[in-house]
Design a protein around this nucleic acid. Structure first.
Length: 199
DNA sequence: GAGACGATAAACT
DNA sequence: GTTTATCGTCTCT
């Protein structure tokens, strides 16, 4: 197990979406996977702000069976299927009813989880991976979900339970990059919002 | 290391 | 019936 991990509380996720997104950089996803606990540090995120964001599933204030989860209060998980094959893990932000979330686009395993996550991704232990596979362990939303075994069964869960939550160690991120979001060419002016953060 | 390409199923209208 | 928007594999450098 890991010492000195502090579970993030609800207050952290109720703040402004972009502040939550930046604040999540360097934080640690803790996910129970069978008998194991997996740990991955968040390296890349994107903010989605429903009411003003054409790239968001909720725009324009579109509550459907799928998107109703995004209208839950901050700290709820939103996991959806894309390409019929992969999952994307988001964390709802701000107060209930706004339809905002942060998409977790990439991460890296903590040392303790390198083997477990490598097995989930490539069915090999970490030291059997080539350098390309090591680099690609969790550097994408679909890869991150596969590596951490985050599935649609994890959709609509409060991220404060013992088996799925976000934690902080005492490390701080001093510098990170800001850029436009990825793969949302359809989103008109929203595709140029600088709401992607990574380091 | 970078670019092209095809796979696929659920939500939505 | 239409929309959605990542990954792995392959090719070439």
């Amino acid at each position: 197990m890991i010492e000195n991990l502090k579970k993030l509380d609800e207050e952290f996720f109720l703040k402004n979406t972009l502040n939550v997104a930046m604040g999540l950089l360097g934080k640690i996803i803790v996910k129970k996977d069978g008998e194991k606990i997996l740990y991955a540090r968040i390296k890349e995120v994107e903010g989605y702000i429903g009411y003003m964001d054409k790239a968001c599933h909720c725009y324009p204030d579109k509550m459907t069976e799928r998107t109703k989860v995004m209208y839950e209060k901050g700290g709820t998980s939103y996991v959806y299927l894309i390409y019929g094959m992969y999952s994307c893990f988001n964390i709802v932000t701000e107060k209930k009813g706004l339809g905002c979330a942060v998409l977790i686009r990439g991460g890296e395993p903590l040392k303790e989880s390198q083997d477990d996550i490598s097995l989930n991704r490539f069915n090999k232990s970490y030291n059997q991976l080539n350098s390309y596979e090591k680099k690609n362990l969790l550097n994408g939303p679909g890869k991150l979900c596969k590596g951490l075994n985050i599935t649609r069964e994890d959709n609509n869960k409060p991220l404060f339970s013992y088996d799925f939550f976000i934690a902080s160690d005492d490390s701080a991120i001093n510098n990170f990059y800001i850029d436009k979001r990825i793969n949302i060419d359809y989103a008109k002016e929203a595709k140029d919002f600088y709401w992607r953060y990574f380091y």
